[in-house]
Amino acid sequence: MAKQAMFRIWRGDSSGGKFRDYVTPVDEGMVVLDAVHRIQAQQAPDLAVRWNCKAGKCGSCSAEINGMPKLMCMTRLSDLNLDMPVILEPMHAFPPIRDLVTDVSWNFRVKKTIKKFRPRSPDAPDGTWRMQQADVDRVQEFRKCIECFLCQDVCHVLREHHKHDEFIGPRYFVYVAALEMHPLDTEDRVKDLKDKYSIGYCNITTCCRQVCPEFITITENAIIPLKERVVDQYFDPLKKLLHIL
């Protein structure tokens, strides 16, 4: 490759900001984060970017690349059209701190409100449990989540409608699913899903599933089954009829 590319990066903080253009050479095999580092090293040493593992596992380097929520460390330049400027912005659903860094602490506060894991008593006299691999696999998919919050960023309920006080977002439906569908868990979170977490706001557009860097089938495997549990428990017409009778 060995050519030049332009990166249009949002620079600013909570009081506002604007895009600035940086032209930098790009080589074969580079990812967006490498380009950001090169810009940092040669042109903008004060450019703030948060990153840590560079292997798509820590969930720190979330940003919007050409308008799509993505991990910078896992987006290869060869997958982008470098004839056009590559636009880099912080996530929109959360308050900006500086440049590409956002304040995602709302998510950690939400997590605290979700009822914790409560296992059933052990199955065997030696204090151990038996589980089928199929059940393990089901929760393992949800537990792959790296809390990059790209799904929260793309979710229109948060991004456009700012329902942060009422709605917990796809990430935390995945978390609730990991607990509710855990073969050992005995806690009940269905009422909370309806009343506190407003799962009904989700109209299954699948945007969250499409941006998930861990390929978790958020909508189909987590949210829809949880919606079904809410419906079964609270909106079943037959049950309602029985109640009236």
Binding site: F117, R130, Q133, Q140
Partner: peptide, 19 residues
Amino acid sequence: IDQCVAQGVPFAREYGGAL
């Protein structure tokens, strides 16, 4: 291992459900 299973860590299982 016992501690982590009790926390819900999804270790791989044999066909009989044991670790």
